[in-house]
Amino acid sequence: MAVDEGLKRELARTGVVTTTFEAIYNWGRRSSIWPLQFGLACCAIEMMATGGARFDLARFGAEVFRGSPRQADLMIVAGTVTKKMAPQVVRLWNQMPEPKYCIAMGACAIAGGPFKEGYNVLKGIDRFIPVDVHIPGCPPRPEALLHAIITLQEKIDHQHFTRLSHPIAREIDERPAEYPIPRLGKHDLEPPANPVVWQPPEPVRSLPIVGQGALAPAKEGKA
């Protein structure tokens, strides 16, 4: 139960700060997200530029790039995931301790990007691991990565971790401990996607009814 706002202000005037354990806990977590040092392709260079002097990822507490997945909270999938690399990415994800987060950086990590046509390119890493924030762009600007980190911080702020306050971060609690690692088969990855995290979009079977809704053809312009 939250403390009444008026009372809080009243107490603050006398030098007493009231807060919740959860708020402090989340504040600590959000301000020290340690990413995995893991560059796949071109986007990784922009990731490094973000860590550089001008954009300074350290302002958000996320500059401590760790080489080992065991010490990391955040996986930034920065670059093209090929079919040869995808099992490795899932394996790294499995090795990271919970609570962990994933940012898919760049068009390639989201959906295959410019190389989507390629026979060896995975069409989006969200087929195998749960992605928290997607950043579009080829490559996304460093500001976009910063925005993604801020978005992630907001998400962390809204997660509840104490059992006293109800919903426990259900999304994290109900996650499997390990995601199945795909195998590079004869023609494709086997399985081609993890059905728990990704399902192919529903094919659109019926055509939109003419004259209804936003899909109606624009007649006014021509007339």
């Binding site: 796949l40 392709a41 090929t82 040869k84 690399m85 190389f115 046509e117 390629g118 060896n120 390119v121």
Partner: peptide, 25 residues
Amino acid sequence: GYLHRNHEQIAERTTYLGTMPFTDR
């Protein structure tokens, strides 16, 4: 081969100009 992105195969299927942005990568 961990980053084999089929650049050459894609270039053989797209236009001459269309390959230009791929060479950036």
